Simulated scan of single mutants.
Amino acid sequence: MAGMAQAAQATIGDSEFDRDTAVTLRAPGVYDTELSAGWTIISAVNGGYLLATLGRALADALPHPDPFTVSAYYLTASQAGPATIRTETVRTGRTLSTGQASLYQTDADGNEVERIRVLASYGDLDVLPDDVRTTATPPGLPPAEHCFGAQDAPDQRPIEGSSAIADRLWLKIDPATLGWALGAPSGKGEMRAWFGLADGRDADPLSLLLAVDALPPTAFELGLKGWVPTVELTVHIRCRPAPGPLRVAITTRNLAGGFLEEDAEVWDSADRLVAQSRQLARARLS
Rank of each mutant, 00 (worst) to 15 (best):
M1S: 12
M1F: 10
M4D: 08
Q9H: 11
T11G: 04
S15A: 10
E16M: 07
E16N: 05
R19H: 11
D20K: 06
R26A: 14
A27I: 02
P28V: 04
V30D: 01
T33A: 09
L35G: 13
S36H: 12
A37P: 15
G38S: 11
I41S: 05
A44N: 13
A44K: 09
A44P: 01
N46A: 01
G48H: 12
G48I: 06
G48P: 09
Y49P: 02
L50W: 00
T53Q: 03
P65D: 00
P67F: 03
F68S: 08
T69R: 10
V70A: 03
S71M: 08
S71L: 05
L75V: 02
T76G: 00
T76K: 14
T76I: 00
A77N: 10
T84F: 00
I85A: 07
I85C: 09
R86T: 14
E88V: 12
E88S: 14
T89H: 04
T92N: 07
G93E: 01
R94V: 01
A101Q: 02
S102G: 08
Y104Q: 03
D109P: 11
E114M: 14
I116Q: 13
V118F: 06
A120I: 06
Y122W: 04
Y122H: 11
G123H: 02
G123S: 04
D124P: 06
D126W: 00
D131F: 07
D131R: 13
D131M: 07
V132D: 06
T135S: 14
T135M: 11
T137C: 03
P138G: 10
P143L: 15
A144R: 04
E145S: 11
F148V: 15
F148L: 15
F148H: 15
F148Y: 15
G149N: 10
P154F: 00
P154R: 00
I159M: 12
S162C: 09
A164E: 08
W170D: 08
K172E: 09
A176D: 01
G179D: 08
W180L: 10
L182M: 11
L182A: 14
G183V: 06
G187D: 02
K188A: 15
E190Q: 11
M191H: 05
M191L: 05
F195T: 08
F195E: 10
L197E: 12
A198G: 13
D199E: 10
D199T: 07
P205G: 06
A211E: 11
A214T: 14
T218A: 10
A219V: 09
F220S: 08
F220P: 06
L224K: 15
L224D: 03
G226K: 10
G226M: 10
G226W: 07
V231K: 02
V231G: 04
L233C: 13
V235G: 14
V235S: 13
R238P: 00
R240L: 08
P241I: 13
A242N: 06
G244K: 04
L246D: 03
R247N: 02
R247A: 07
V248R: 05
A249S: 11
T251E: 05
L255E: 06
G258C: 09
F259N: 02
D263P: 00
D271Q: 14
R272D: 00
R272M: 01
L273P: 04
L273M: 03
V274A: 06
V274L: 09
S277D: 14
R278E: 01
A281E: 03
A283V: 15
R284Y: 05
L285K: 10
S286A: 14
